[in-house]
């Protein structure tokens, strides 16, 4: 029985046959509803992992199964958010959030006639991430943290079963980042969506995830997996508790080894 996201013995390289693999013999399993974090030294193929799992790239070797189906095209049900919020400046925040609905069926054909219903849904999401009433503003009128919140709304509006986050908080200041950790934590708790978070922030990974996967330096491979059994819901205070710090410390050791090996 394959897991919800089942990446098995995957090797992938960019730039032709002789290119150095970005990931090699990579095996990662993520169960449905699980929050998995992937950490590793820079250039370890974390983003490649994301592209493979969403079908934006196809592996040279190995198999990838998402939601019971082998990935041979973009998966069509993933929400994505990146370090760069990538909101479209000519659309209001609300229209930016509605963008996925203009693409994904069945919403695509329903959107025009049921606009009010979808707008209400988007307003609800905005309120959930603390952007109540900001829908009419243009993205460039919002701060970096607010843009990132809006980008999360866009990733969630079509109720994806899989949410891919590629260092979504990397460009934010420490306080905003911790605030958004809580936003993600609550969204995941409320929707039981499967989340794969790629990050280089170990505290972020441990605070949010059920399981942290450590990758080696290029070519990326899994060198350690650590279950995070801290009780949920987690409060930010937990990041100062001894068990939390121990886990972060342990992961840090793995990453340090991986960097030394490189």
């Amino acid at each position: 029985m394959p897991a919800f996201v089942d990446i098995h013995a995957v090797t992938h390289a960019y730039g032709g046959v002789e290119g150095l693999p970005a990931v090699e013999d990579l095996t990662v399993r993520v169960e449905e509803g699980e929050f998995a974090a992937v950490v590793g030294p820079s250039g370890c193929g974390k983003s490649t992992l994301m592209k493979l799992a969403t079908g934006l790239q196809f592996p040279r070797a190995g198999t990838i199964v998402v939601d019971g189906r082998q990935v041979s095209q973009p998966v069509r049900m993933a929400g994505m958010a990146f370090q760069n919020p990538t909101l479209l400046p000519w659309r209001t925040t609300l229209d930016n959030i509605l963008l996925p609905l203009e693409i994904v069926e069945p919403h695509r054909s329903r959107l025009r006639r049921h606009k009010a219903e979808y707008v209400e849904k988007a307003q609800g999401l905005l309120a959930q991430v603390g952007l109540k009433g900001m829908g009419d503003k243009f993205p460039w009128q919002l701060s970096g943290g607010m843009q990132q919140r809006a980008s999360l709304c866009r990733a969630l509006i079509h109720e994806p079963k899989l949410l891919m986050l590629d260092e979504p908080f990397g460009a934010l200041d420490a306080f905003t980042r911790e605030e958004l950790w809580c936003v993600i934590r609550d969204l995941h708790a409320a929707r039981r969506v499967t989340v794969i978070l790629v990050t280089h922030d170990l505290r972020e990974a441990v605070f949010l995830a059920d399981r942290v996967v450590c990758m080696s330096a290029r070519p990326g491979r899994v060198i350690a997996e650590r279950k995070v059994d801290l009780p949920r819901p987690r409060d930010l205070e937990i990041t100062y508790s001894a068990p939390f710090v121990d886990i972060v410390h342990e992961l840090r050791g793995h990453i340090a080894n991986a960097r030394k090996a490189a």
């Binding site: 592209k51 969403t54 079908g55 934006l56 973009p74 998966v75 069509r76 993933a78 929400g79 994505m80 990146f82 760069n84 990538t86 479209l88 000519w90 963008l99 996925p100 203009e102 693409i103 994904v104 866009r154 990733a155 079509h158 891919m164």
Partner: peptide, 25 residues
């Protein structure tokens, strides 16, 4: 931006969708 293209493609957007929604504006 490649990221917004990734967002669109991961939603199953066709090349034409990406042109109309993003490229032209």
């Amino acid at each position: 931006e490649p990221e917004i293209e990734d967002v669109m493609r991961a939603l199953g957007a066709s090349k034409r969708d990406i042109m109309v929604k993003i490229g032209i504006p």
